[in-house]
Amino acid sequence: MNTPTRRRALTLLAAAAGLPLLDLPLMGLRPAAAVEMPTLRHWSGVALGADAHLVINHPNPAEADALIQASLAEVARLEAIFSLYRPDSALSRLNRDGVLVDPPAELVILLAEALSIARRTDGAFDPTVQPLWTLYAGHFGRPGASPAGPPESAVREALAQVGYHKLTVAPDRVSFHHPGMALTLNGIAQGYVTDQVVALLKARGVAHTLVDMGEIRAVGTHPTGRPWTAGIKAPGEDDRTLLTLPLRDQALSTSGAYGTPFEPTGRFNHLFTPATGRCSDPRFSVSVSAPTATLADALSTALSVTPVGARVLARFPECRAWRAGADGSVTALNRSQST
């Protein structure tokens, strides 16, 4: 999925007032003092090309460790389906051949969800933007590349291959309508994998856990009885938290253009507006809380590239969203919401 050097915009915090922070250090985050919680088992590593963390509240350390290993096996299984960078993955084979017969059920389920969100966001979320990534990465990967970006003619050519309505998804076949099309699931797959790990843990009796496989989802409470807590960092910064949010049976995702820039200024980056091929403003990020990490992941991507965020968000009454600025501002995107 995304490369491990992607900068994270969320940090996980302890929920208990008066206690030091529970240290789950993310990339670029200043470590905090850890709380001794003997029932908590921690794992930190890389999943789907990004920093990942798993915290399980369980009285039996051996059983907790077995649950962590089962979770990681599930992540590995799903990565073999969704990875853009493994040539043998189902997604890579689809992008290479333009058609995938007898696709894995998980790919069909996730693509159906992606297309539903694409329609509900008027195409602001669109998994077919991979040709734009290829264009920009290729342009800035060449020596002496123009700092003005690819020529408009090349952008128009790439845009001709973009459009979620040009993708057919059925249980027995996934196919593109035109040669040159390609999918990326980087704006939704990490959320889906997070949800699948949560489902696995719940099925095995875990009632209190914090799962972060690129996106965060909290189940139950922290051992103190308080909610789990996540902090939204200032865009492009590692150690300035602008907003702290309690999480209980809720997911949280942040999308920021500064996360994966193609060139030093960040003007050209991985968050594309599907209608124009232009890139999102790196001075801002969008965070979304939702019942599932899949929805939070996709919706934070969509709200990062649409000029009518409040209107789109109104179609998702179960979600809340915030826009954070590098100047330290935080704006609630829900019309009736306050920070």
Rank of each mutant, 00 (worst) to 15 (best):
R6M: 15
H58L: 08
R86I: 06
H53D: 03
E79P: 05
F284E: 09
L110N: 00
G309Y: 08
T168D: 13
G225S: 06
R8F: 10
P291E: 04
R173L: 14
N57V: 09
A70K: 06
R204I: 02
I56S: 00
S175Y: 12
G236A: 11
F316I: 01
S44I: 03
H270E: 07
T306N: 04
E263P: 05
L94D: 06
G231Y: 00
D51P: 09
G123Y: 06
G328T: 10
P179F: 12
P59A: 06
A145V: 07
L242H: 04
A137P: 03
A275S: 15
L243E: 06
D195N: 11
R267I: 04
P4I: 15
R41I: 08
P61I: 04
P261F: 09
V312W: 03
G259C: 15
H208Y: 06
P227D: 09
C279W: 02
D88T: 15
A16I: 01
P104A: 08
S289W: 00
P282K: 09
D51E: 14
L94W: 13
A73I: 03
F262G: 00
D195A: 10
A199L: 13
V108K: 02
A170F: 07
E152V: 08
W43S: 04
Q196I: 01
G328L: 11
R41V: 07
I109D: 10
E36P: 02
L40H: 01
S304N: 11
T229C: 14
T39E: 14
A118W: 01
S280Y: 04
S253V: 04
P104M: 09
Q196P: 02
V129M: 10
P61A: 13
Y136R: 04
Q161C: 15
H270I: 08
L185W: 03
H58E: 15
G277N: 07
L78Q: 07
F272P: 01
G163R: 08
P151H: 13
E215A: 12
F284I: 06
A52Q: 03
E237H: 14
P104S: 08
D195W: 03
P38Q: 07
R335Y: 06
S89M: 13
V219T: 09
G231P: 02
V312F: 06
V308A: 08
Q337F: 07
L48D: 02
D297N: 15
L48V: 10
G205Y: 03
H42C: 10
A66E: 10
H53G: 04
H208L: 03
L40K: 01
V288F: 09
D65R: 13
G309N: 05
R41E: 06
K202M: 10
D97F: 14
T3P: 05
M27Y: 13
R217Y: 09
A321T: 02
L48Q: 11
F284M: 13
G225N: 05
R119M: 05
A50F: 00
R142E: 13
L21S: 11
A114G: 04
T265G: 09
E106R: 12
G277I: 04
L135E: 02
C319I: 03
S116C: 03
V286P: 00
A326R: 14
P171T: 09
T260H: 10
